[in-house]
Design a binder for these strands. Sequence first.
DNA 1: ACCCCGATCGTA
DNA 2: ACGATCGGGGTT
Length: 182
Amino acid sequence: MKKTLKRLKRDFFNRSTLTVAKELLGKVLVFNDYQGVITETEAYMGFDDPASHAFRGKTKRTEVMFGKPGFSYVYLIYGMYYCLNFVTEEEGFPAAVLIRGLRVFDPKTQKEIHLNGPGKLCRYLGITREHNAIDIVRDKHFYVGCIRQSMQFKTTPRIGIKVGQDKPWRFVSEELKERNPK
DNA sequence: ACCCCGATCGTA
DNA sequence: ACGATCGGGGTT
């Protein structure tokens, strides 16, 4: 019996970024033939968050962060990895949630694997710059669905940043048996 | 035109 | 602990 997967609508993303980041844990990311449970997220938001790409104002790259909630924000980091975010909050307020961890069923090994890390996650799924600024509330092959309620999680500072470490805006699912990255 | 450096990862 | 690798964004 297949569980029904209810797609998250615009209203889900049009809320406080911290709320969206926490509630995305346990939700199902659908990307083409892949489905995975989100296990780790980080929030980047507003004009007062120095770690956010939008901190210094709107640019070509960060434009989508200022746009409507429910769009993807994909960028290249360190010249070799992509990172996937979902835009949150009302249009004009720059904010997004970084997807850092995913449990997926690997068709090759027939085993569930844990993609821990935003770069590894995008590399495995095949997410690139072409998948930036996609409306994941409307797209047929790229969206987020819900099969269960909420998950237990812990809260920590964000990873890999030199500023904004005072903000505990990383959320990690407690159901993980694997060690935490870093 | 130039330069610095990053929301990472794998190897040492 | 460090190198790979390159585009974004600030500065000249």
